[in-house]
Design a binder for these strands. Structure first.
Lengths: 216, 216
DNA sequence: ATCAACAATCGTGTATACAAGAATTGTGTT
DNA sequence: AACACAATTCTTGTATACACGATTGTTGAT
């Protein structure tokens, strides 16, 4: 129970939101949550304050907390920012690559190859996450890494939906290959450019996203 | 008192930290803060949880809260990310500029011109902030705008220090001119490039930052 | 004199009680 | 039957009380 009920609850509720168990727009009643998790209202409130600060829920004074519904447009904006940050991470990685980071990227990349080859989108979903994290780490900017990981978390559900689109697995993997080449070649600009387009949502992929979002 | 003691305290303590009244490393005692602001510990704790979530303080379980000391290296990383986000905002602004945004940029830009001409670094500090905010708004991405504003806030104290460096005012303003030209010309790539270098900390400006940070 | 162990104290973490505002339901009037 | 207003109920916001862990100071032994 994480040594501390507040932290634990924050993670617990955050996961429930990100896994869509608490749907966007849903009201989060303090008393209900307290009894559900077997604690008093105090730690629940503390968890909610934190989630509000992160931007996952909105606490309207005297009117309770609701799960924020980003809506397609805002999700698009978030992907846009994510693309930019990943681009920066990639360019830094290309410049600062060392042996350890290189091995981490290689390892996660080949795991992606396996799951993509097997057509296992759930496995690829996980391996892909590790691959991107390896790139953040290779950039050697703790702050950037934290920002990337946090945004990545928030976009996780939508990313998952995207992977279900036809042919997305193999397309994604071949993009990974080019990205790895650019980083290993020390070509920061190219790595940046490739990552931006890899992460960003252009053209038809935006309508795919909207479609899958309204589908649930 | 903002209708709600928790929110009010969050802003109050946040300002105290950003204005260096609560120095990095300083311990924040809940009881002391409670009596100081004339409330009980409950809203104080809620404010602290939020500041922890934002990343301004760290709450170590059972050991209280301390103001985070970013240190020169991390501040540099934050400027690096800020530069990237501002670059994106600039490129979006160039593409999406409309009459209202154009007027807002022009207005804040000329206010910068006045305070820079007068050599009033405090006034320029404020006008510069408004100028950058006008660019964020012109980009028409609410999420990006929020991220920029938040990071801008956290970097505020360091930015203020930087402006005191000799000639920085006129240098900064002439960079603004080029940025405005690029945006008004619809040249997104150029606006991005200029903003990146304008915001980023390269070469000697990093040592200026370090010097001014250790000076206080 | 230094270190270790134990005790006292201080501060955080959680529960509960109480107050105040919002939402809801019921009643009365048109 | 529909709308408005009032009373009740429910939920949030704050204070306080209590418990447990950490920190610090003191005492005794080596």
């Amino acid at each position: 129970m994480s040594e501390n009920a507040g932290r634990w609850l924050r993670d617990e509720i955050e996961n429930s939101i990100l896994s869509n168990e608490f749907a966007p727009g849903e009201r989060l009643d303090e008393t209900v949550l307290a009894t559900r998790f077997g604690v008093s209202r105090t730690p629940v409130r503390e968890a909610l304050m934190q989630l509000d600060a992160i931007g996952l829920i909105e606490i309207r004074p005297r009117r309770g907390a609701v799960v924020i519904d980003p809506g397609p447009h805002r999700v698009y904006e978030m992907f846009e920012v994510m693309a930019e940050l990943e681009g920066l991470a990639g360019s830094l990685a290309a410049r600062r690559l060392d042996k350890t980071s290189r091995e981490a990227i290689t390892a996660t990349h080949s795991r992606c190859e396996q799951s993509a080859g097997a057509g296992d989108s759930d496995a690829y979903y996980y391996d892909n996450e590790e691959f991107h994290k390896a790139i953040y780490a290779a950039g050697r900017s703790e702050f950037l890494e934290e920002q990337c990981v946090q945004l990545h978390r928030r976009l996780r559900p939508y990313r998952r939906l995207q992977l279900r689109v036809r042919n997305r697995l193999s397309t994604s993997f071949s993009e990974h290959c080019a990205i790895v080449d650019a980083i290993f070649a020390g070509d920061g600009d190219e790595a940046r450019r490739l990552l931006r387009t890899h992460v960003g949502i252009q053209g038809e992929r935006f309508s795919d996203l909207v479609a899958s979002m309204s589908a649930r």
